[in-house]
């Protein structure tokens, strides 16, 4: 079970991120969370939004290079060791994490971890068998 994220290629220079967020604002797309991976020359912005299709449409209109990619969303209690418990499962399953990011839910009780795995199916199986909460797309976007 995976969720959809939007990854956008941006040059590492002033105003590029601002331009991106303005386009999403004008389209009334809400960003649940994001991560920025950067090098000195370029960066990749990864977004979890409430309306994936609409975000993709406006980005395409504006000529951005982006892709819709899948990540695994895991809900954990927001307490000490919450992340570690999940990483312990992943590590034991010999799955590698390409990248990850996280955010805390509005209620403040839970946090959501977003993972890009090299073997997502094996990771999800391992998480399920340890009773971890893997979120569906609908559940995530409407949080």
């Amino acid at each position: 079970m995976q969720v959809e994220q939007i990854s956008i290629f941006l040059e590492n220079k002033p105003g590029r991120l601002e331009n991106l967020t303005r386009i999403l604002k004008d389209a009334n797309v809400n960003i649940r969370t994001l991560s920025v991976a950067d090098t000195s020359d370029f960066g990749i912005v990864r977004l979890i939004v409430d309306q994936v299709a609409e975000a993709a449409r406006v980005l395409k209109d504006q000529g951005y290079t982006f892709s819709r990619t899948s990540v695994v969303a895991v809900e954990v209690p927001d307490r000490a060791g919450g992340l570690h418990d999940i990483l312990d499962i992943i590590s034991n399953a010999h799955v590698n994490i390409e990248y990850m990011y996280a955010f805390v839910e509005r209620s403040g009780r839970n946090a959501v971890l977003l993972f890009r795995f090299d073997k997502p199916d094996e990771a999800v199986n391992a998480l399920h068998s340890h009773n971890a909460t893997v979120l569906s797309g609908d559940a995530l976007y409407s949080l």
Partner: peptide, 17 residues
């Protein structure tokens, strides 16, 4: 210039590098 074809394969820094 980067394009969609290039980027759709993977969204990882290491791929672009």
């Amino acid at each position: 210039e980067v394009n969609d074809r290039l980027f759709s394969k993977a969204d990882e820094i290491k791929t672009l590098q």
